[in-house]
């Protein structure tokens, strides 16, 4: 501190405490609500002293919402997106930074045009694409009247239908969200700061491009990878719109979507205690990831700004 400001310092701590309480209040309140039986949770106002029904509510929420299946789905989706994004973008950034080839600039521009476009702005056509992955090929096929040529070649009319649907599948949940330029951009920025001498030394020692990638680039990128793991895992876990569209089978939806079925509607009995218990279960994994990997997470988040 520059000067002594006892009053201001006390105020700082008081406001900080208030701030932490206000920010934490929704979750603390949810935690209390999850310990109450339905009779007390629907009292107005709900008593702020926790009751003893926590495990009962947890169990009820778990069974009602089929959370076991949905949490597994969420986990598969989040880790799929995380791993996919990081692998794809590590290789892509390596190709863009460490090689010089004719279509390099084209590849660079193609990828970075997508930098900030979220799924939300192109939901309908992306959905159609996922509903039939071979849609473009089919169109090309029809456009070129290839079936006529094939029919002439084979000697009789045949109909060829290319059809591969990604609806209600893990691939469909994961793959479209892997398309993102942010990670590639971050890795590119990082690779550009790696000293030239490392690459020169590796080349003198006779390392091939992939050896250099494996033995030097990968170990150096460890912290960046850790940071992105946190960010992308949270991102993947919290996805809402895409899983909502692409899954219709309740066995395939994610936990964040499934939670909606547990919110009491106007005519239901107000099982808010179970809804809150379920909300706590569903939000726990990303919170744990953020808290335990806080240092990398903060670093990674702030790095995005540069």
């Amino acid at each position: 501190m520059v000067e002594r400001t006892p009053i201001l310092d006390t105020l700082t701590y008081i406001f900080l405490m208030v701030g932490i309480l206000v920010v934490g209040f929704p979750i603390i309140y949810a935690l209390i609500a999850a310990t109450h039986p339905i009779e007390t949770v629907s009292m107005v106002p709900m008593p702020l002293i926790p009751s003893d029904q926590f495990w009962v509510n947890m169990q009820a929420a778990w069974n009602k919402g089929d959370l076991g299946t949905q949490l597994t789905n969420s986990f598969i989706m989040a880790s799929g997106i995380t791993i996919g994004k990081i692998c794809v973008s590590l290789l892509g950034a390596f190709s863009i930074v460490y090689f010089d080839y004719r279509l390099r600039t084209v590849a660079f521009v193609t990828v970075f045009c997508t930098l900030m476009l979220p799924v939300e702005v192109r939901i309908l056509p992306t959905y159609e694409m996922a509903a039939n992955l071979f849609g473009p090929l089919q169109m090309l096929w029809e456009f070129l009247h290839l079936d006529g040529i094939v029919a002439w070649f084979v000697g009789h009319d045949i109909e060829i239908k290319l059809d591969l649907s990604l609806l209600d599948s893990y691939t469909g949940l994961i793959l479209p969200l892997v398309a993102s330029a942010t990670c590639t951009f971050l890795f590119r920025q990082f690779f550009l700061t790696i000293p030239e001498e490392l690459c020169e030394a590796a080349k003198i020692d006779g390392a091939s491009a992939m050896t250099f990638f494996r033995k030097i680039i990968l170990p150096l990128s460890k912290t960046n990878i850790a940071a992105l793991v946190v960010i992308e895992f949270v991102y993947g876990w919290n996805q809402y719109l895409w899983p909502l569209l692409i899954t219709t089978n309740p066995k395939m939806t994610t936990a964040v979507i499934g939670l909606q079925n547990l919110i009491p509607q106007a005519d239901d009995l107000p099982f808010w205690n179970e809804a809150m218990a379920a909300a706590l279960i569903v939000m726990l994994p990303p919170i744990l990831v953020v808290l335990f990997m806080q240092r990398w997470f903060v670093k990674g988040l702030v790095e995005r700004e540069k």
């Binding site: 794809v88 290789l91 090689f99 193609t110 997508t114 992306t126 398309a179």
Partner: peptide
Amino acid sequence: LILPQILVTATFFYWPA
């Protein structure tokens, strides 16, 4: 190396757009 990125971007971004 860049192929996976381009493929995913093309199928789930450029084509839908």
